[in-house]
Computed example of a mutant assay.
Amino acid sequence: MTEKQLSTDEAEVYDRQIRLWGIEAQEKLRAANVLLIGVRGLGSEIAKNILLSGINSLTILDDGLVSLNDITGNFLLHEKVPIGSKIAEQVLPRAQALNPLVKIVVDTDSVAAKSGDYFKEFTIVVATKIKFETILKIDGFCREHNVKFIYGEVAGFFGYSVSDFQDHEYFEDRVQLAPGSKRGHEGDKKTKRIKGKMLYPPLNKVLVLPNTKQDIGAIKKMSRPNNLFVCMLMLVEFRKRHDRDPDLDKKSEDIEVLKIIATEIIELYQFSKINVDNLLELIFGELSPVCAILGGIMAQEVIKAVSHKEVPINNIFLFDPVTYSGKELTVGA
């Protein structure tokens, strides 16, 4: 990625952000080309945040059609948008209005039809609403072309994201006391740039499901396995088997299926004292407030990954539907 020098107009528009994370980080963002797969509830929140951050271009890839639920739950859609029209095309006007400085490209092809070469043009790929096999396929393409990848979903009051930023170098500015100075003296403080590196495992070592030939050795080393991690895998496996998310109209039936899947996952990982029964009533639909929270978190991780400023999450974020708090988890490393 070649950094793009900001114009005078851009520097004025992004003034507050430059004050927050610096001109160097903003120039890296301004050179970034982002691919967003899926622009439903969560995808629209991610799009909003990364557009406002000041990237170079955003490509929206979604072959889906507008439904009534989309119109009521997606703020990028006008209320008079025709049902059954291409959702990627319909979100374009409002998305572009958020930041006219960003080039937006709409792609209504199927993500499954894309070859590896398609992904090499991007700085980072952000994905929602895709199946397990597609997640691993895209992650493989991204690793081949040194493109960063983050995937996330919202299910009712629950949300999660998982990242593969590969060999990621970052820096952070820390305020430190000058040698020999006393605490409490503002003039004795200085800012020091600290560099670091994080190694992310491929997602086939992070998202390991029943009835696969994947290796679970690294995941068995997890120090504190929890029910939210099992809930995430349970939802990934449900979509893998049924090609849909849990449906409120089939709630009782789907809960029984989810219980069976959760039991299989717990047995596969040999987890003890893990139970997800208290979560099963809370994971239906794509609730807008949770989309806003997770969309903010994922966009923040995109900004960190692209700008190399601050420490990103390594590698899973889980939003607890009971306590409404976020948890970070490192898996597969």
Rank of each mutant, 00 (worst) to 15 (best):
I55Q: 06
S67A: 12
S85E: 12
H78C: 02
G152K: 05
L76P: 10
I124W: 07
V147D: 02
S110T: 07
T72Q: 14
I50S: 01
N74Q: 15
F165L: 14
D139Y: 04
V162R: 01
L51I: 13
I150M: 04
F122E: 04
I130C: 05
E89W: 00
L68W: 00
G73K: 02
D139M: 11
G73V: 00
F75D: 12
L77V: 11
L77G: 05
I150Y: 01
D70A: 07
V162T: 12
V81W: 06
F157G: 00
V81I: 13
L61E: 08
T72L: 14
L58G: 06
D164E: 05
Y118E: 02
K48Y: 09
R94A: 07
F165D: 10
A97C: 10
D70Q: 02
K137P: 01
G159C: 10
I104C: 09
A127L: 03
F75E: 10
A97V: 11
F141Q: 08
D139T: 08
V106F: 06
F122N: 09
I130Q: 08
E133C: 00
D62T: 06
K80V: 05
V91R: 04
I104A: 03
S161M: 10
F157N: 11
A113M: 01
G140F: 07
T72S: 12
I71G: 13
A95S: 15
K103G: 10
G73M: 07
S85W: 04
G116H: 01
D62I: 09
G84T: 06
A155I: 02
A155P: 00
Y118R: 10
L52Y: 02
V147Q: 05
L101M: 15
K114A: 06
Q90R: 14
C142H: 09
F132I: 00
D117F: 04
L77Q: 01
R94I: 09
V111C: 01
G140E: 14
S161G: 14
F141N: 07
P93S: 11
A155V: 03
T134C: 03
D62N: 04
Y160T: 05
V106Y: 11
G140I: 00
L98I: 13
D70C: 08
N49V: 12
I55H: 12
P93T: 12
V106Q: 02
D70G: 12
E79R: 14
S110Q: 11
K137L: 10
F157V: 03
N99A: 10
G152Q: 08
H78L: 10
K48C: 10
L136V: 14
N74G: 02
Y160L: 08
P100V: 11
K114T: 13
Y118I: 09
D164H: 06
V147H: 04
A95K: 07
D63K: 05
I87Y: 06
V81G: 09
F132S: 11
L52W: 01
I83V: 15
G116I: 09
E121S: 15
L61I: 12
I124Q: 03
G152E: 08
S115W: 07
G73S: 15
L65H: 09
L61N: 01
F158Q: 07
S163I: 00
H145C: 03
D164R: 01
V81A: 14
G84L: 04
L52K: 12
E144D: 13
A127N: 05
